[in-house]
């Protein structure tokens, strides 16, 4: 195996893992901080993608369309939290069922609004060359985006007043309320933040994954498994799980077949959950 092939495989596998992490963080925040499994996560990603797409079609530069996508998904997330999720805290299966229903409704809404096919915006035609191999520049950029996104959420949750309130509202809701934290509002904010992160992911990944009504399905299974493998220390755990599972699957796919890559992902997930039923970070003493 030549050195240049090995280098491109490693770099692009890291990029694959980063894409998985970008798509997962929003889910991780909502699950980790609220104990809510948001099965409509993929659809928020889709909404983010369509918002960014619509904005760019209206003449907004792509970079500016990303904050617009975040704002729109956060707003929709907040409404969903107030109308639905709010009433279902602590009932994990009911929230799963409700968010699943929401995902189906959003999917069909997208079909009705945008039709089944909409023009994509394509990736910047910029690539770098390592020996004989080319790598798309935009995919590599995702490594930095994932790192930035991870640090942003980590700092937000550990270094800001909101972050402390958010963790307090979920871990000790009664105590949090007793000391004057309006926990229901904080929960709305956290759910909305998780949806905003999904919207960000949909927008930033738009050049790589074209916006289609069904795009959420492709992400939600692997994102969900990543969060489950991660366990209670969600953010660090998700980063490790994404790199291990996503990167490992990509390396396997590069040397064997794409099917082997998927088999790797699901097999390792099963083995890890067998060894660590509560997730790989179950015994850790970290906050995020």
């Amino acid at each position: 195996m030549e050195f240049d092939y090995l280098a491109t495989v490693l770099l692009s596998s890291l990029a694959s893992a980063s894409i998985l992490l970008i798509a997962t963080i929003g889910l991780a925040v909502v699950f980790g901080l609220m104990g809510v499994i948001n099965l409509a996560h993929g659809e928020f990603l889709m909404i983010g993608a369509y918002t960014a797409l619509t904005a760019t079609q209206a003449g907004v530069p792509f970079l500016l369309s990303i904050p617009i996508a975040v704002a729109v998904t956060m707003a929709i997330g907040a409404v969903i939290e107030i109308l639905v999720i709010n009433r279902l805290y602590g009932r994990i299966f009911d929230t799963m069922l409700a968010t699943w229903g929401i995902s189906i409704a959003f999917y069909q809404l997208a079909v009705l609004i945008f039709g089944t096919v909409t023009p994509g915006i394509g990736m910047p035609q910029y690539s770098i060359k390592i020996g004989d191999y080319n790598l798309a520049g935009y995919s590599l950029l995702m490594i930095f985006v994932a790192a930035l996104m991870g640090s942003f959420v980590y700092l937000l949750m550990t270094r800001t007043v909101y972050g402390m309130k958010a963790r307090a509202s979920i871990q000790e809701p009664a105590m949090a309320r007793a000391i004057g934290i309006e926990s229901s509002r904080v929960n709305t904010m956290t759910f909305s933040l998780g949806c905003g992160l999904a919207g960000f992911a949909g927008a930033i990944l738009l050049p790589i994954v074209p916006a289609t009504p069904s795009m959420g399905f492709a992400f939600v299974i692997k994102a969900f498994l990543t969060v489950v493998v991660a366990g209670p220390v969600t953010l660090t755990g998700s980063a490790i799980a994404a790199i291990g599972l996503g990167g490992g699957a990509s390396i396997t796919a590069s040397f064997l077949t794409s099917v082997a890559g998927d088999v790797f992902f699901f097999l390792i997930t099963a083995v890890l959950l067998w060894l660590f039923p509560l997730g790989i970070t179950a015994g850790w003493r970290r906050k995020m």
Binding site: Y5, T8, V9, S12, S13, A15, S16, I19, Y133, L135, A136, S139, I208, V209, M215, F217, A218, F219, I221, S250, I251, A253, S254, S258, V259, G261, D262
Partner: peptide
Amino acid sequence: LALTVTDYAPTIQ
């Protein structure tokens, strides 16, 4: 490739 694959970097290499 499975129908759910979204990242084609391994195939492209």
